[in-house]
């Protein structure tokens, strides 16, 4: 099941980190943030390699436009699996699933759908005219929707 979802801005600052954990204490939050933060390494690496291959051959530029926003499994630890998704405006979406809890066998397609839905939710959230791009997302509705996404979908 998904244990954490994060939205990270194009400057790599966290815009939203939401998690459903069993215990809400600070250690849990800390390890969750470490996990998401270190996932950025893998994300950045993926992005830079796709960019390089695009610049190398001009034929790839067309493919770049159609590039799948879903990056797949970024990396896995003994306890967690971390999936990445990058929007065209370089907003990074990260989804962390627990590989120890029951029902940990999540299919890739499910994660893809969940991240697509998260993308849609994010787009809705920043459509709010009172939201400033680059600010943290504080919308309660967004939070609620993301939490339900995590509980229901994945």
């Amino acid at each position: 099941m998904a244990v954490c979802v994060a939205v990270i801005g194009k400057d790599n600052s966290p815009l939203y980190i939401g998690g459903i954990g069993n215990d809400p204490n600070a250690d849990n939050e800390l390890s969750r943030q470490w996990l998401v933060h270190t996932a950025l390494d893998a994300l950045e690496e993926r992005l830079s390699t796709t960019n390089n291959s695009n610049t190398n051959s001009s034929t790839n530029t067309a493919r770049a436009d159609l590039r799948d926003l879903y990056l797949g499994l970024l990396y896995s630890t003994d306890t967690h699996k971390i999936y990445g998704y990058v929007t065209n405006t370089r907003i990074k979406l990260v989804l962390v699933t627990s590989s120890t809890s029951p029902g940990s066998n999540i299919r890739d397609a499910e994660v893809r759908t969940a991240l697509r839905r998260l993308h849609a939710l994010y787009a809705d959230a920043i459509c709010n005219p009172f939201h400033l791009p680059g600010d943290q997302i504080t919308s309660l509705k967004f939070d609620k929707q993301v939490k339900s996404l995590m509980l229901n979908n994945v």
């Binding site: 400057d11 600052s13 966290p14 939050e29 800390l30 943030q33």
Partner: peptide, 10 residues
């Protein structure tokens, strides 16, 4: 710099 304030606080 990356504005991870929670980690920065820690």
């Amino acid at each position: 710099r990356e504005k991870w304030w929670f980690l920065a606080s820690h």
